[in-house]
Amino acid sequence: MIGVQGWLPQAVSFLTALALVSAFAALSFRTLHLVVRAYAAQSVLLGLAALAVGLHKPAWHITALALLTIGFKGFGIPWFLFKVMEDVKIRREAAPFIGYPASLLGGVGLTLVSYAAVRPVMTDSFAGRGLALGLTIMLLGLWLMVGRKKAVTQVVGLLIVDNGLFVAALSTSFSMPMIVELGLLFDLLVGVTVLGLLIFRIQSTFASIDTDRLTRLRG
């Protein structure tokens, strides 16, 4: 993003940094509700960042997309996940693969890794930072997916990866073209619905949503 002036870079970097904090929050919470809330907060923050870009430019399609993101990722998906959790009656992540302090410190390590990786191509400071931040959020999402057992948390990890993509796209190229973003949102809708059904299936077959039980054979 060459030639951005005024309050925009500051506002966007502040909001995206808070999005990073919510990714760390998702890593640190034990209660599944709070993990989903952290995702919702992250989506709203990113929606606000996109809204700032849209209003500053001004570009109607970014504004519309920002509002869609807030409504869809900030409220729609979390609502669906809450419903799923209500039905499978799972509330907490009992024994994660990676403990909580270790996963937080690992998260800091991933932050450093992604900044080190982006540094050589960091030509424009704003875009470079955004790319690094997007990469960090993606890695944190993956980290959440590999570290936890519950299927719900792993779904949230996947959604956080998508949010990381959103950050990278927003800060490097003023977000993706409308059609791509709409496609992504639609994909996410289908994906979350399918994963929600899958969680029901895992629950009904194994009486648990711990994904490590999937390795057992079950007729």
């Binding site: 970097s13 995206t16 940094a17 302090p101 410190l105 800091v108 900044y115 930072r129």
Partner: peptide
């Protein structure tokens, strides 16, 4: 307190040593 430590560390990294400017 580990959360507090990690947040402070990120703050320190973003402002100082590496000038990441998160």
């Amino acid at each position: 307190l580990g959360i507090a430590f990690v947040l402070a560390l990120l703050g320190l990294l973003s402002e100082g040593i590496l000038r990441l400017g998160l």
